[in-house]
Computed example of a mutant assay.
Amino acid sequence: MLEILLLRHGIAQELQPGLLDHDRALTQPGRLRSRAVVERLIAMELHCQGIFSSSLLRARQTAQIAVEAGLLLPGGQCQIEPGLAPGADARAPGADGWALVQRLRQQVCCDGLALSSRWALVGHEPDLGDLAALLIGAPAGTIPLKKAGIALLQLGPGAAQLRLLMAPRQILAG
């Protein structure tokens, strides 16, 4: 069984003159909330075999928080996946987010990794939400992720199943 944990980056700096979108960092509240969300995911035993992150600073920082907090299982790796940067058309079967999920599916199903594996994808909206919608067969725009929000999908032979969709407030209330 393959599970994909989609994690949107935390609250980041506003875009301002002289600051490229690629270089927008998490704010202090964004770091704190992201850390609290990841700690709750760990308490829910949602550890991951690997983490793939967008190359943008705010996503890389969110992924690093996840690694430092212990979301990554021993031996797992955190790596940059350029296809998770904003603007990829997640609704198209050839899109990079889609391709990454299909590579993971192939690796788990055919290479006989673990019977159960979970992988985190750290990125942006609307791309992550559109990827989730594509995987479960829903229209684009129907699965929004708040900043530091998550979606957990279980992939089987057919369409994926949406197991969790939670905003940070919901995660932290538990």
Rank of each mutant, 00 (worst) to 15 (best):
87 G>E: 11
28 Q>G: 11
77 Q>V: 06
129 G>F: 02
14 E>W: 08
105 R>M: 08
132 A>Q: 01
123 G>L: 08
124 H>K: 14
16 Q>G: 03
122 V>M: 10
79 Q>S: 13
165 L>R: 15
135 L>C: 10
141 G>T: 02
24 R>C: 09
143 I>W: 05
112 G>Q: 00
155 L>H: 01
121 L>Y: 05
168 P>S: 09
170 Q>W: 04
51 I>R: 04
97 G>Q: 01
4 I>C: 06
36 A>I: 14
158 G>F: 03
138 A>Q: 11
108 V>L: 01
7 L>S: 12
143 I>P: 07
108 V>E: 00
102 Q>V: 12
96 D>K: 06
118 R>F: 10
9 H>N: 13
125 E>M: 12
12 A>D: 15
70 G>H: 06
74 P>K: 05
68 E>S: 06
148 A>N: 01
8 R>T: 14
97 G>S: 08
136 I>H: 03
51 I>V: 04
67 V>H: 01
101 V>W: 00
171 I>Q: 10
34 S>Y: 04
88 A>L: 13
127 D>G: 14
20 L>Q: 14
99 A>S: 12
21 D>G: 14
169 R>P: 10
163 R>L: 13
64 Q>F: 06
45 E>R: 15
92 A>Y: 14
123 G>N: 08
59 A>G: 11
135 L>P: 03
36 A>T: 06
141 G>V: 02
12 A>P: 15
76 G>P: 02
8 R>W: 08
145 L>P: 10
48 C>A: 14
170 Q>E: 15
31 R>G: 02
166 M>F: 10
32 L>D: 15
109 C>H: 00
144 P>E: 07
146 K>G: 10
66 A>F: 03
163 R>G: 11
109 C>T: 00
122 V>W: 01
154 Q>N: 06
107 Q>P: 00
92 A>Q: 13
166 M>D: 02
52 F>M: 11
85 A>E: 14
134 L>I: 01
20 L>V: 05
157 P>K: 03
105 R>F: 04
30 G>F: 04
15 L>Y: 12
31 R>A: 13
127 D>L: 09
96 D>M: 13
65 I>Y: 07
43 A>F: 14
17 P>C: 13
129 G>K: 07
74 P>T: 04
70 G>Y: 06
116 S>T: 07
6 L>C: 12
38 V>K: 07
165 L>F: 09
34 S>T: 13
70 G>V: 04
